[in-house]
Design a protein around this nucleic acid. Structure first.
Length: 610
RNA sequence: GCCACUGUGGCUUAGCGGUAUAGCGACGCCUUGGUAAGGCGUAGGUCGAGGGUUCAAUUCCCUCCAGUGGCUCCA
């Protein structure tokens, strides 16, 4: 259906002569006039024929909403065949208009339906304000997954008690805020100034204005941090179980059955592109690729469980007004692992282990999670209750259980969203783990069991540190919160773009500074050299602004002695140490975290201003 | 997507019906300086895009685009 709305001072019409499909009308119905009216010109299309009720209710709702918004007092429904080349048959058209008339009047509106199938003359006076003319296309999609029943929430305590969220007053601030938002539909608390974007800019993480909304670009510092986080995500999964690392494409044809089915379950937010012959969906996680590969693998029960892993560029068409730097993007990078398990008990065992690791990784950044546990049905809760109780007891914290309306065919049965409380007092989901019982069958992934029979594995989905972007968000937010407490904001040493910077006092000290920098660099540390002809004060100022971990001035004193005066950002003071001690200190802080060399020249004199 | 606000050189920004501030940065010269900005100078902008009102629009109005905040959404 296509519609055109005009908010008018008045609208009047008069029928001229009938067309062959004209409805029979009385003399009284041959003219009509309304004032302060929203006129809806309506074209019923062929597509609407098999779903008159859905279209009529959607269109009526939209008309009423618009009428309220513009402040119209009355509504006129005006059949108007000229908005579409693809008309429905006359029967459908008449039925649609009558249906809409009854819905709109049922809502208490003064409504007038102009006769169908007559040539009419009309006079209209459009108000001309911005919303006074609007057009719509109404698809009237049948809601395939129409929720049956209500969603509900329960707070599950470590002692096994189940509490209604509105009666639960304990738990962390994060838990209360998450519960308020999710279960009690409370508004977020008032937010302060958004501070993390300052750090995004400082470290070169920005929107790319020449792309679609929600696409980020990273200049060298950000690119380096990004890659280090991605390296780390790979290291984590490989330390958990045997992992097959793969690389895939990011687009899949929508005419492939499993892809289409999976897409349907994902709902809107699909990012699609047109190809030459086929239409494609951009993957919203690594699922497609890994499942498409694994359906071809010969898997024995002896090799289970194992993981498949990729840092997958993933795409979701988030609403444009909803994008948020490093947190909600249309293109994101998900370190996505799927764990193939032979049965439910094995999947629960590994679900628990992944949960543990997810908490551990937040802990390494001094952050803590609260759990939002989603169930696709009450039965799923009963089925996994023992596992969940074990998890809740282990963390000794409540979990907010969310039950989706029954009867929706989700691929997962249970998933946990792990939320942190950020500087703006918002609960933000970072990590996740899910149990998937649907996709093995959908994609035809099987393993051979002890008796030589084909079985469908249970698949766990997990992003242990969340998307790379969100992990960076958590790191930057942690730094923002340090500053909020009056401390100097720092990044963990391993992910600092520049761990050490040397700066010479005069030209005469440059060779020495460079020599020391090279030594530090060869120890596997990112080091820069401020060789510009600037004053020491200025160099130090900029080193501090750049959040360099350790800054060392090289002058006459350092020419003569091995002792260095090192500015230590974390302590925010100067510390005396030798070069060997400095190297040892930085290396031990990096520990066994990933290392990459700098993504830009060592010498500041050579650097362009980014 | 909806509502509100914002959009001025690479960045931060002043201003306003008569084509525009300043700082940082860049570039040049001087300065060889010891832990958060050394000095002087030069270049760089058709004030987000399009349309309208006007003798004249960066300034007022409309539309669009982009960003920010809130809402909604987040199988």
């Amino acid at each position: 259906m296509r519609t055109l709305y005009i908010h008018a001072d008045f609208m009047e019409f008069e029928v001229k002569k009938p067309t062959p499909m004209a409805e029979s009308i009385t003399d009284q119905q041959k003219t009509g006039r309304m004032e302060e009216v929203l006129v809806a010109f309506i074209t019923v299309e062929k597509n609407d024929q098999d779903r008159v009720e859905a279209v009529a209710s959607q269109a009526s709702a939209d008309i009423i909403e618009t009428a309220k918004k513009v402040g119209a007092e009355r509504i006129m429904l005006y059949p108007y065949a000229h908005l579409s080349p693809d008309l429905s048959n006359a029967e459908t058209g008449k039925r649609m208009l009558k249906e809409m008339e009854s819905i709109v009047s049922g809502e208490g509106w003064d409504v007038h339906r102009a006769p169908f199938g007559w040539y009419k003359a009309f006079k209209i006076s459009c108000k001309g304000h911005p919303l006074s003319e609007l057009s719509r296309e109404i698809a009237g999609e049948e809601k395939v997954d129409a929720p049956k029943g209500e969603e509900r929430f329960i707070v599950l305590l470590p002692d096994g008690t189940e509490i209604d969220p509105k009666d639960f007053k304990d738990g962390t601030e994060c838990f209360q805020i998450m519960m308020g938002k999710e279960a009690l539909k409370k508004e977020w608390p008032a937010t302060g100034e958004v501070k993390y974007t300052r750090l995004c800019k400082k470290f070169g993480m920005n929107w790319e204005s020449m792309s679609d909304s929600g696409h980020m670009c990273f200049t060298p510092k950000g690119a380096l941090m990004f890659d280090l986080a991605a390296d780390y995500s790979a290291r984590i999964v490989n330390s958990i179980l045997p992992v097959y690392t793969v690389k895939g494409t990011n687009m899949f044809a929508l005419d492939e059955g499993p892809v289409a089915e999976h897409a349907k379950l994902f709902g809107d937010r699909l990012y699609t592109i047109k190809g030459e012959k086929r239409d494609f969906v951009l993957r919203y996680a690594a699922c497609h690729q890994q499942f498409a590969m694994m359906r071809l693998w010969n898997i024995s029960y002896k090799t289970l469980p194992f993981g498949a892993f990729e840092v997958a560029d993933s795409y979701r068409l988030e609403q444009s007004g909803e994008t948020m730097l490093c947190f909600r993007t249309r293109r994101m990078n998900m370190p996505d692992m799927h764990v193939m398990c032979k049965d439910i008990p094995e999947s629960e065992e590994w679900f628990s282990r992944l949960d543990e690791r997810i908490y551990e990784e937040a802990g390494k950044l001094d952050r803590d999670y609260e759990m939002l546990v989603n169930f696709s049905s009450w039965n799923a809760y009963i089925q996994h209750k023992d596992m969940l109780m074990e998890i809740v007891r282990k963390h000794n914290k409540p979990a907010l259980l969310h039950f989706y309306p029954e009867g929706i065919n989700y691929y997962w049965t249970v998933n946990i969203e792990y939320h942190i409380l950020d500087d703006m007092k918002r609960a933000r989901e970072i990590g996740t783990v899910q149990i998937d019982i649907g996709n093995a069958q959908r994609f035809g992934i099987t393993y051979t069991d002890e008796e030589g029979k084909k079985q469908y594995p249970i698949i766990l989905h997990t992003a242990v540190i969340g998307t790379i972007e969100r992990y960076l968000y958590m790191i930057l937010d942690t730094a923002v919160q340090m500053e909020a407490k009056g401390k100097v904001g720092t990044l963990p040493t391993w992910i600092q773009p520049e761990q050490v910077r040397f700066m010479n006092v005069t030209d005469g000290h440059l060779a020495k500074a460079k020599e020391l920098a090279m030594k530090v660099q060869s120890a596997g540390i990112r080091v820069s050299l401020d060789d510009r002809s600037e004053t020491v004060g200025k160099k130090v100022r900029e080193a501090k602004q750049d959040w360099v971990g350790y800054a060392v001035v090289i002058g006459d004193k350092e020419m003569e002695s091995d002792n260095l005066v090192v500015f230590d950002r974390a302590q925010n003071k100067n510390v005396d140490m030798t070069l060997a001690q400095l190297i040892e200190k930085v290396r031990s802080e990096i520990g066994d975290m990933p290392f990459r060399p700098m993504y830009m020249p060592m010498e500041l004199n050579r650097r362009v201003d980014l």
